[in-house]
Amino acid sequence: MTTQAPAAPLLFVHAHPDDETLTTGITMARYARAGHPVHVLTCTLGEEGEVVPPELAHLDVHHDDALGPHRREELRGAMAALGVTHEVLGEGDGRLSRYRDSGMAGLGTAPGPDTFVAADLEDAAALVAAVIRRVRPAVVVTYDRHGGYLHPDHVQTHRVTCAAVASLPVPERPLLYAVLTPASWAREDREWLARHLPADSSWTLPDPDGDYPPSVVADELVTHEVVDPSLVPLQALALRSHATQLTVDGRVYALSNDIAARLSGREGFARLDPVTGDLLAASHPDTTAGATGSTTTGSSTGAPRCADLTEGTPT
């Protein structure tokens, strides 16, 4: 009788509560349902975030400054919905986190010494490396060098996670991925919103011909994908736990900026070099028999994408 090897663990490293479900909720749910241990490490509690519901506005930094503990509980609810484990970087011994949210760039205020963006890179990387050694993931997922959309904490999360993986002996390094969106997907999502958002909606439609965040890249740079629209209701359920940060309506959500965004049920990735932080040279597999069982659609170049993050990038 053959003994089946245990499913490979995955670790997702994110900057603030809600980032994990917005950018990798489908992937985490898919792997958790397939029996993989999935763990989320959140680097700050998002204390500087805006608050959407007026009845909770008192939590923000301009009033009670109690948003961090509240968002910690929102994170618990979201992770329970997705069926994954979670922790905050440096929590324990009576404190909820080691670092404070740094706030968006361009606000005109210098980040305090306890903020994540001001953290010593070596010290923060050591904390993340300790989590990696404990969780022993085969795969670590975080942001690209632009942090997805240039938030200072997201950029720092990329730097710290790369340094943590690079600090491990080469044989012990997990596969490291950045979350990316193929340009064709991003445009399709905006065109879908134009057809499906009710005319009387108070949310703004994003322009398909407008600007996109840096994490939207040429299709050929995205080498891996998880596609499962059936998991969107579960992702939406988890997102509703993050009620201070966003509003969900079916397969559409909006942050505090009231710009509509689609829950499309698909997420893209590419391998990172932990030493340089750069994307590894894009290459595509000839076969796509992923352990998650998801289908593979392929890039605009016609090359298929791998459906299993644990398989790495074939050469």
Rank of each mutant, 00 (worst) to 15 (best):
A105W: 11
A186K: 01
E87C: 13
V179Y: 06
P174G: 14
A105D: 14
L96P: 01
G90A: 09
V84W: 01
A124I: 01
P285V: 01
V40G: 08
D64M: 02
L255D: 07
L10R: 06
L239I: 01
T21E: 03
L56I: 05
P233G: 05
E50M: 14
V217N: 01
D308E: 04
A5H: 14
G290T: 05
D189S: 14
D93H: 11
A118G: 09
T223K: 03
D258N: 09
P54S: 13
H16L: 07
A289D: 10
V222Q: 12
A5K: 15
G94H: 14
P208K: 05
G312C: 02
A80C: 05
V160A: 02
A238D: 02
A126Y: 05
D211Q: 12
C162D: 06
Y99T: 03
E172A: 15
T295R: 10
R187T: 11
R100Q: 10
T157G: 08
M104Q: 06
R266C: 06
A32M: 14
P54E: 15
A29P: 00
Y149H: 11
H158P: 02
H70R: 08
V88Y: 03
D101Q: 00
A183K: 04
A5E: 14
P111A: 06
T3Q: 11
R33N: 08
L41S: 09
A34M: 03
V170P: 11
P53F: 07
L82G: 01
G35M: 04
L96R: 07
D211C: 09
E188A: 13
D120S: 11
A105G: 13
A238G: 02
L280K: 04
E311R: 09
Y99M: 03
A124H: 02
T276R: 12
A66S: 15
A105H: 09
G68N: 05
P198I: 08
H58W: 14
T244G: 13
P213D: 10
E191G: 01
A110G: 00
R262P: 00
L272S: 04
T115K: 11
L45F: 07
T181F: 04
P53A: 03
V216H: 13
A270C: 02
L221V: 10
D65V: 00
L237D: 15
S241M: 07
R98K: 12
P208R: 02
H86Q: 13
E267T: 03
G298H: 07
R173K: 05
G298T: 05
G25W: 05
H154G: 10
S241R: 09
G250K: 10
V160M: 02
A163E: 12
S256V: 11
A199P: 02
L193K: 08
G68T: 07
R266V: 15
A118R: 15
